[in-house]
């Protein structure tokens, strides 16, 4: 018999402090000692519990152990009823969360930690509301979308309006298929071959199936958001060109003056290092740092070496700027 683990993701306890239709704000239970809270803004593709996968792989647990006050935005599982949400609605909710935390904690600004497309949203937010962002942590951030990786090339060559007109939302199944087809041999064969080689290794099995459970737990992307993010980000590259606007206000990267930490993965086939290098050069922040990992997009979060080394360094950086 093979020891298939019981999959129950999420180690750290939390409460929802705001529940607004689809979106929620989670607050992790802890006894923080540092003044500035961390608000994690994950992507609207896949689920945020990758940051709290299990007992041995949990970025959030490490933050809580470092006595940080940790909050997280949950973008939920969009249904057809949500198909007309827009990117501006996501930024609205981020602002609502930030204001809630500021009021509750009696502070002016938070540490905003964005991951993948959540980092893009965080950059937009920080450029529009810099007074509310004390520190900015960007994990695998796509800012310049005109990169040469397969996913970006595909996104520049599709018609998202037709997809949304037909399906309503960009469904989880469609996204899953696309993410596997960008690299079919490595992701469909290579990965499972390594599983077959390690079927007797309980730890390997546990890590593998926890990851697979997360990978295939794909919420849909609301139709209008999908159209916007493909056309305005991937195709027109509005963020790095500072043409993206939120309710008439344009993104201005000159406003990113706060301490900024960027985590980049060398083998990231979704947000390669080239998607952030121009942004990093451009921002005027005098306290900015880039940490480069030799892992991939997800390995940056979950690999043993990242858990042991990179996250120690990241959390240390945050803690030093949290009082």
């Amino acid at each position: 018999m093979i020891a298939i683990p019981e999959i129950r993701s999420g180690v750290c306890e939390f409460d929802f402090e705001i529940e607004d239709w689809l979106f929620r704000l989670a607050h992790f239970k802890s006894e923080p000692e540092h003044k500035i809270p961390v608000l994690i803004c994950y992507a609207f593709i896949n689920r945020p519990y990758i940051l709290d996968l299990h007992e041995d792989v949990s970025v959030i647990k490490k933050m809580l152990d470092a006595k940080l006050d940790v909050w997280l935005v949950d973008w939920g599982y969009p249904k057809r009823a949500d198909r007309y949400l827009q990117l501006s609605d996501y930024v609205d909710f981020m602002d609502r969360c930030v204001d809630h935390i500021r009021e509750k904690r009696g502070i002016d600004a938070v540490t905003l930690h964005g991951y993948c497309l959540g980092a893009t949203l965080s950059i937009i937010y920080a450029s529009l509301f810099p007074e509310k962002v004390r520190n900015l942590v960007l994990q695998a951030p796509p800012v310049d979308f005109h990169t040469s990786n397969t996913l970006a090339v595909w996104a520049r060559n599709i018609n998202p309006e037709k997809i949304v007109r037909s399906l309503g939302n960009a469904t989880g199944d469609l996204l899953n298929l696309s993410f596997l087809l960008v690299d079919p041999i490595r992701l469909v064969v290579g990965k499972y071959n390594s599983l077959l080689d390690n079927m007797d290794d309980e730890k390997f099995l546990r890590d593998f199936f926890y990851m697979d459970h997360w990978i295939f737990d794909s919420p849909a992307v609301p139709g209008s958001v999908y159209v916007e993010y493909i056309t305005r980000w991937y195709q027109r590259n509005e963020v790095i060109n500072e043409e993206f606007d939120y309710r008439g206000r344009r993104v201005n990267l000159e406003n990113i003056k706060m301490p900024t930490l960027v985590l980049v993965a060398e083998k990231d086939h979704i947000t390669p290092p080239e998607s952030v290098s121009q942004f990093f050069e451009k921002i005027p922040s005098k306290d900015k740092k880039m940490i480069l990992s030799e892992k991939g997009h997800i390995g940056l979060t979950v690999s043993s070496s990242s858990q042991k080394k990179i996250w120690q360094e990241v959390i240390k950086w945050i803690v030093e700027r949290s009082d």
């Binding site: 499972y192 071959n193 599983l195 697979d212 295939f216």
Partner: peptide, 12 residues
């Protein structure tokens, strides 16, 4: 396990 994992494992 997710049905996709099961499907891909069998294929492999």
């Amino acid at each position: 396990v997710p049905k996709e994992s099961y499907d891909l494992l069998r294929r492999n």
